[in-house]
Amino acid sequence: MDTTEPVIVIKDLCKAFGSNVVLDHFNLNLYRGENLVVLGKSGSGKSVLIKCIIGLLRPDSGEIFVFGQNVPELSYAELDQMRARVGFLFQSNALYDSMTVRENLEFPLRRHWLHVEQKEVENLVAEVLESVGLAHTIDMMPAELSGGMRKRIALARTLILKPAIILYDEPTTGLDPITGMEIIDLIRDIQQQYKTSSLVISHDMKLVKRAAGRIVMLIDGKCHAQGAYSELKNSGDPKVRAFFD
């Protein structure tokens, strides 16, 4: 695996909501097989960033290359194909609450442009549930699951299309510290097992310390600093140090 090849390249990304400038000429590279954490305060534009990457929000200007394709310029069909290779774990999990766990997991496979045979669908569902350690929940409804279990099922649903990149939106928010740790370990395990590149946005320093290969600090809409945990922890910049103190 070529770990120097960027799978996501963001150049001069700008996004504002009215007079509120959220991203101001933001730049970022995500390399193949990398675990990158974008660290920033609440409301700093982290979620806006990954929603721009997946095409849920349209940037005001700038370029977002995912596997060499500029996302804002893609047609709906091309965006669909790109999304098959990029998984997205929502902060709220976004499980379909009128469907069982099985139906939630089958949903992307049955409706996507990829045509998957029934037997293969069943195998994939069993495999991803096994990966997140929740094979017994297959016929349960999301409302019957705990917060941590819901997060795992949401992760399983993300994994079912075997994405090359996974975008995590605040994966430990709302979880107790022990469950949060389990999710962090799961993210690392999945990255190793499926050889995915991960872009995690968070303000959870435990996650950053345990899961980040590299950290990008999003401050005032810009890439303020980047580096390994140990480098940033010893930084002299007060804005950076504020996160570690």
């Binding site: 997946i54 849920l56 999304r83 499980l95 996507h112």
Partner: peptide, 9 residues
């Protein structure tokens, strides 16, 4: 949004 990112219209 989850439907959209999983390739469903």
């Amino acid at each position: 949004d989850a439907m959209e990112v999983s390739g469903t219209n």
